[in-house]
Design a binder for these strands. Structure first.
Lengths: 242, 242
DNA sequence: CGCCTCTTTGATAAAAGTCAATCAGGGTGG
DNA sequence: CCACCCTGATTGACTTTTATCAAAGAGGCG
């Protein structure tokens, strides 16, 4: 189920949002963030499994995640899906639709989630009086380019165990920024989804988790993970010189 | 060798450039393109093997390729390089540096090349009188995000032969847009570089080229390729339903 | 309680990597 | 001008990694 929520005068705005240090306003001055308050006029609440947008939908907005998590996936001509990202609160989704104003991917909620709707037209209007907003948005797009390039590096250069270690370390880092534990968290995605994302099969992912557990790098039970040896995982993920 | 060239009054500008239908001005009106003419005040000429920028360099500009070709590559902690793109005339390079105004990759010329320097500061100044320029730039960044996501799909979902076929088809399409032959061209990169880009070893690339030639899909001699059966290559690259 | 989905684990097969030798061109220096 | 050298490309033999196929186990939800 997808439900649109209009923002009431007393609702949380960018300037009063817990995530304002991470999301669109990251690095902006207090004053400038307050000017952002009129930008988001709507939110969307999604229950688990529902789509925020689909391939082919008109793309007149991007979305900042308020809570929950989503995945984006591309679909090729033969119908095969490739997950291109897992997104957490404070991250921006939908940037790939701005080329033709049409979404080229699907965005699906991995759990009950809520996103802030950032209309491009509103942003352009606002940025006339707030030029820093354009730079801000450019930074966010550049960040997504970097993230995707890192993914290319991971898929092109790392072996399965390194990819999975890098995946865990990356999740850990992003959760830390959000104030969650860096060593204990719930995987919101299935083995199949992790495998798809990392270019591996679900069996390989499962086997690697078991092996990491045997080697006391992690403890894992279903989707609950505890990272026992973060430095070792970091080393494994390619930071070492082997 | 890298040489900076100031633009003289009689030099080619965006409005008189052969590539204006492809490059930064793609899709802009005649009038708007003329307003772009003051944007590029400098060009850089690179001889083969030289770098346009290196990891860590200040990033105050992006670059439109005028002629030649370049590669961009990331370097990980252990010194391993991963090529993230090969760029042709009309394409924009350097978008990944706008997050922190520092380049996070190297850009190296694959042959003697020339690029137009697009200073971000100039662009921001100009876009105050030409709001369409911001949208234009957003489209270009979105395009790079899409390209990179496609690459993730290719690396994550395709087998070696499909990746190489997709690589050839992609090159063919981009060369066609530039007015070159879609079936006969010179590879500007080595087997090693192709392999690195596609997440394969140079031996695998070489073997696949030989196999494609044996199957009459291509003819290849050193770096000269002729695509004999483009539809079959397209089918192989994942457009089929197998 | 039972069904259904997700996960784990094993056995085997296929894909791609590694190591090694040879070959082909292009450029350089005698 | 030709021989040689160096780099890049090809090809073969063998190994490793990861996928595939298959079966069984574990939770969660109606």
């Amino acid at each position: 189920m997808q439900r649109r929520i209009s923002i009431t005068p007393d609702a949380t705005r960018c300037s009063t949002c817990m995530l304002s240090e991470l999301c669109l306003p990251i690095g902006m001055s207090r004053d400038d963030v307050e000017k952002l308050d009129e930008l988001v006029q709507e939110r969307v609440r999604l229950s688990k499994g529902n789509t925020l947008f689909n391939l082919g939908d008109a793309a007149d907005a991007v979305y900042g995640i308020r809570f929950g998590s989503l995945k984006t996936q591309l679909e090729d001509a033969s119908g095969h899906m490739q997950i291109t990202s897992f997104l957490l609160p404070g991250e921006i989704i939908g940037l790939d639709g701005l080329l033709t104003n049409t979404h080229v991917s699907n965005a699906v909620a991995l759990e009950d989630s809520e996103v802030c709707v950032i209309r491009i037209q509103e942003m352009d209007k606002l940025s006339r009086h707030l030029p820093v907003l354009q730079q801000q948005f450019r930074r966010l797009m550049s960040k997504e380019i970097n993230r995707s390039h890192q993914m290319v590096m991971s898929l092109g250069a790392l072996r399965s165990e390194q990819r999975l270690a890098a995946f865990l370390v990356n999740l850990s880092q992003r959760l830390t920024i959000l104030g969650y534990s860096s060593t204990e968290f719930i995987l919101r995605m299935s083995r199949d989804e992790i495998g798809n994302y990392l270019g591996l099969t679900l069996e390989t992912v499962s086997r690697l988790f078991s092996r990491f557990a045997r080697e006391n790098l992690i403890r894992i039970h279903q989707r609950e993970v505890r990272l026992l040896d973060l430095p070792a995982l970091q080393a494994l993920s390619g930071a070492d010189c082997n």
